[in-house]
Design a protein around this nucleic acid. Sequence first.
DNA 1: AACGATCTTGAACACCCGTTCAGGTTAGGT
DNA 2: ACCTAACCTGAACGGGTGTTCAAGATCGTT
Lengths: 208, 208
Amino acid sequence: MTPVPPAEISSSVRENILRAAAATLAAQGFKKSTARAIARTGGFAPGVIYYYFSNLDDLFVATAEYTSSDRFARYRARTEGIEAARDLLDALRQLYREDQGQGHVAAVQELTAAAVSSPRLAEQVRLQTARWQELAENLIRTQIQGQAFESFVPVGALASMAVGAYLGLEMLSHLDGDRSTPEELFAAAEPVAAMIDMLRGQTDLLTD
Amino acid sequence: MTPVPPAEISSSVRENILRAAAATLAAQGFKKSTARAIARTGGFAPGVIYYYFSNLDDLFVATAEYTSSDRFARYRARTEGIEAARDLLDALRQLYREDQGQGHVAAVQELTAAAVSSPRLAEQVRLQTARWQELAENLIRTQIQGQAFESFVPVGALASMAVGAYLGLEMLSHLDGDRSTPEELFAAAEPVAAMIDMLRGQTDLLTD
DNA sequence: AACGATCTTGAACACCCGTTCAGGTTAGGT
DNA sequence: ACCTAACCTGAACGGGTGTTCAAGATCGTT
């Protein structure tokens, strides 16, 4: 009777459910992501969800973790240690391109909106957001290290802004049904990156 | 039999429904914003919704227009013509404070997420977003007018970024249940504003 | 005072929801 | 061959959904 799976052990089925949940969220939105809809997407019976998760809320919390961690790991690995702002920008542009159409971006957005009515989900989304915030802070710190303006930059706040801009960018792009490329936005960041690289080492430009 | 109200004429009831819809969206999220829930919030019978709107989708499209236009008008009036970057920042900070807790911000967010499954709603949200984008472009253009770097600035892309950051900021703040103030983010923008004001008129700083 | 147009109500309709669970399937140990 | 534990199925349950509509309320005009 409703046995909990032995945790740890197995299972690709669990992951299959998570993928189906993410895909359904991205394609249909939170309201239409019913147990039946998710099951249809994944090609399994609705009942199986309740073998691996105790209820739908549980599934969505797990989905928030799944869709973000996956992506986070790749972002961290591919940006850590990059020193030139130009290279960092290119890396981000490339990562963004790869994620487009994967559906995880849209899923996160739906889950964020859904968080109003689920404290557990809200907590999970906050947690994931904090990880991104920290990653952004590290990237910014690497960029400005040794710059003349290093001590002027409010890193935490700037990181919040960057994360916000990134989320907003995805939001807007998703609104279009992913019709618009974010290429122009990355292009806009290019002069900034160039300026940062140019200033590197010039220590007395803003001390006046 | 289901007569359409003579348009134009009347009605504060219609607005009352829109307010109730926005409030319910903000407090309960899109999924729980049912006809009955909205009616309970507004203190009217569920049936009345269908006298003023042809269905719930219609109501949400109208709500997207209502919550954004209201706010947009105030933003435009209170920022147009401001020349000093510092003053603009203060105006935005003040406007943001006033809107906090009004619920319109959260409502827009819910509607944006809901747009995946409603083409008409998606179209309306896109339309409102375009208006904000245009406002941002005008503000930026005013700020950089006559600056040394005027010709370097990709105004359109920068405006997209600003709108994205603003949306993202609201998203993050809403996630907290509005526990966190965005004060620190505005603080982060202060050095930037100061720099813009400082550079005003110095025409040959970046021509190298 | 009576009327018609306008507005409001809430019970009723068919339908879909999250969740359960008795039963079926599978696979490995003996 | 048989047993057992794990896994999977989908019909069935009570309850909530969007929407309709007959009936009632309201009110300016006559």
